[in-house]
Design a protein around this nucleic acid. Structure first.
Lengths: 225, 225
DNA sequence: ACCTGAACACCGTTCAAGT
DNA sequence: ACCTGAACACCGTTCAAGT
């Protein structure tokens, strides 16, 4: 019997380090301890090794954060169901990103900052295909996809970041009340508009509001055709 | 003759510290050294004092970054000229933000991350007033202003962040060529859309592209009326 | 090839002591 | 009231030494 062909590292101990294991451990740490909880020392402790070992698998912290975000987004995109129309597909992708960032707030911070990494490009690609399916002229496709992606990522991050301000115990209604009160406390002379919308904000459903913005941009895309 | 009424600190030495001087020094440091160049030690050296002195005027680094961004945005907003129509005014505000972030790339990072601070609220307020002037129904004003602000800040930050990747000497055309080549190097099976738009990207004027996105959202707002 | 962990060169922030 | 600067409790990253 011939020896089985072995791939690189195929005979490694199960507890050996690998880029994937490092990234998964980073995600777990980020999820439980928050963004400032990810340190090479804490990560090394979790992996039962020294901080230096991690650098054999990942170049630096920036790459680690990018890889962690990329993995979370890939999972979220894989979980998005197929849809009958491009319009519904775009809404589905948008909700998928929104929920992924809500569940992993640190991803929002990672995606909202330029330059676009692979994580954001995944979203851009998925949205872009639906923009094509919508029949948008090639010269206008970049603009349309860019508007959608910036809106999706921006609002999702803002939603997740606001959530981070409060303990999980505080419910949504109380939170909106607080932001609303905060905005209404702004200088009336300098912030008349913001104060005015603060009133509506109180009885506003994030998800409904989020999708209304998607529809607004879709209407703009349709109008251009 | 009665003593003149004095405001708090009115008789201070000219070289005394103040919140404003700290913030201005931080802006200068951020502009010349970049985001990682702002440290309390470097800032203290620039102000000819010790790092501890700064904490008398500002609570912590986050507040310092927020105050610095707020000052830059305030200046940018003050520089935006009046316009005959709400549509032109919105484009003017958008270009003002774009240029401010291009000149101070660290502001883009600051604004693109939620939760919204006063700097972003300034932009939201200015945009919102024009959305009102456009005749948008009150219930739809938040959505419209939010879509515009997220797009403006997102694209401006991305533009500035891309610029930071290269030395100033590398010109725009060469840069776009590089990004275009990078995107075209992506896996054809996984990134057909991104690769397709990479071609257009090469001969694309950032500012024109940016304003096309604003117009797209404005068209969506108009369609909803 | 991959792992170890001490060491280097930093950070933000605090605080007793000064003026 | 405001400033000083040493000290504390960390960081990311490197690298000689191991297996």
């Amino acid at each position: 019997m011939a020896k089985p062909t072995r791939k690189r590292g195929a005979d490694r101990r199960d507890d050996a380090l690998s880029r994937d294991r490092v990234v998964e451990a980073a995600i777990a740490l980020l999820d439980t301890e928050g963004e400032h909880g990810l340190t090479f020392r804490a990560l090394a402790a979790r992996l039962a090794t020294g901080p230096g070992a991690i650098y054999w698998h990942i170049a630096n912290k920036r790459e680690l954060l990018a890889a962690a975000s990329d993995a979370v987004v890939a999972r979220a995109m894989a979980g998005v169901a197929g849809h009958a129309t491009p319009r519904k597909a775009i809404r589905g992708i948008a909700v998928g990103v929104f929920e992924a960032i809500d569940a992993h707030p640190w991803v929002g911070a990672q995606l909202s900052r330029g330059p676009w990494q692979t994580a954001t490009l995944q979203i851009f690609e998925r949205i872009g295909r639906q923009v094509q399916a919508l029949g948008v002229a090639p010269a206008a496709q970049f603009t349309a996809a860019s508007a959608l992606v910036n809106y999706i990522v921006g609002v999702s991050d803002q939603n997740a970041a606001n959530g981070r301000w409060f303990e999980p115990a505080v419910d949504r209604a109380e939170f909106l009340e607080t932001v609303s009160a905060q905005w209404k406390g702004l200088d009336p002379h300098a912030y008349p508009f913001t104060r005015a919308v603060a009133t509506q904000l109180r009885k506003h459903d994030d998800r409904v509001e989020f999708l209304a913005g998607i529809d607004l941009i879709l209407a703009g895309i349709a109008a251009a055709r």
